[in-house]
Design a binder for these strands. Structure first.
Length: 354
DNA sequence: CCTCTCGGAGCCTAAAGTCG
DNA sequence: GACTTTAGGCTCCGAGAGGG
């Protein structure tokens, strides 16, 4: 179904009820060169999938890799962890385990909108496409009424107050910590003069983690560039990945990927998470931050408090609101009644009392 | 269970404001 | 004039109600 393409990514597989013991190859003993005591075991590795860009083609199952890694170096305070591999038929979940519900999952893909929904889809608040008749109108047998509406012209001459200057690291003036701002809490005296490093977007199905600070590289792997090529050092050998295994004592491990502890992951002590955006003067949601969970919507009720009657069903059993030529699509978030796409009065969401 | 409604989050982009 | 920020206008996701 085409409307599924914009839906949330599929849920991660359910976490196994029982957490079996980790096999020895998933212990921190893999990394003897780590500073003694700095990152004591256990920490675990995850063998990359064959389609993983870090997968070693010369090793059928790839080299063991720490589950926490930075590729390329992420913004301070963040590392990327591999997404869980798919379950192995007959063997269940491989290591590590999938993240639990509530783990900050990969950002959902941006919703894509068509330039102009047809009048039917607009009225029904349903997904449209660029073809005419659109897929939905064809499906409902109303292809003959599948036409574009007309957009209202934007208002002009509306005066605004002075603009707030945004940080380069977010949509708000509270900047995300930069590489030059010490995660250890040192205050930078020049918060805005250092050119901001640019970071690639977090790969899909990766998970954000915090790391304490760089400096504990794990065994070498190539450091692929965004184009997928590896960077070699002066000797022609691949540069190691900047891995940052977490110190379980300081930064409690995330259960599914590390020591089976109960601690949900949080920002390191010296590295505060990106601050919540200040309330927008207009109350408008900031697209760059995770929105709060939607509030439970309340059913629209009539003057007497009784639920408004549904529109009568069409005889063909298909939807009746918004599919006809009088259906309109217009803003309904600002509370202003405006003309619909056909110039008719806004009948959207108006329920017939008949 | 399925269909339909519709609140409101999210997206696009033009207008207003700022900067060099 | 180019760039940035804001917000108007719109799309459409997805929870919830109600019907079959």
């Amino acid at each position: 179904m085409s409307s599924d393409q914009a839906k949330s990514p599929p849920e991660q597989p359910a976490q196994p009820a029982a957490v079996p013991a980790y096999p020895p190859q998933y212990s921190g003993a893999h990394y003897p060169q780590l500073p003694p005591g700095a990152y004591p075991p256990p920490y675990y590795t995850y063998t990359p999938l064959a389609n993983d860009p870090n997968h070693d083609p010369n090793a059928p199952n790839g080299p063991p890799m720490p589950y926490l890694m930075a590729f390329p170096p992420p913004p301070p305070g963040m590392v990327y962890a591999y997404a869980p591999p798919p379950p192995v038929p007959g063997q269940g979940m491989p290591y590590p385990y999938p993240p639990p519900q509530g783990l900050p999952a990969a950002p959902r893909p941006k919703r894509k909108q068509v330039k102009m929904a047809c009048t039917n889809c607009a009225g029904a608040c349903k997904r449209c496409d660029d073809s005419r008749p659109c897929e939905r109108c064809v499906k409902y047998g109303i292809a003959d009424t599948c036409v574009d509406g007309t957009r209202k012209e934007r208002k002009k001459g509306i005066k605004r107050g002075p603009y707030k200057r945004k940080s380069k690291f977010g949509s708000n003036e509270a900047a995300f910590p930069t590489a030059s701002s010490a995660p250890t809490g040192e205050a930078s005296t020049e918060p805005t003069t250092t050119p901001a490093p640019t970071y690639p977007p977090m790969p899909e199905s990766y998970y954000p983690y915090y790391y304490p600070h760089p400096g504990y590289p794990a065994p070498g792997h190539e450091v692929p560039q965004p184009n997928g090529e590896a960077v070699a050092n002066g000797n022609g050998h691949p540069m190691p990945h900047p891995y940052y295994p977490l110190h379980p004592a300081v930064y409690p491990s995330y259960p599914p990927y590390s020591h089976p502890g109960p601690v949900a992951y949080a920002a390191p002590p010296a590295m505060m998470p990106p601050p919540p955006p200040p309330p927008d003067v207009n109350g408008k949601a900031d697209d760059t931050v995770t929105a709060a969970p939607k509030s439970k919507k309340k059913r629209k009720v009539g003057e007497d408090g009784a639920p408004k009657a549904k529109k009568a069903k069409a005889t063909n059993g298909e939807i009746t609101n918004g599919v006809g030529p009088t259906a309109v699509g217009s803003s309904h978030t600002n509370g202003t009644a405006v003309n619909g796409v056909n110039g008719a009065a806004d009948q959207r969401h108006v329920v017939s009392s008949a």
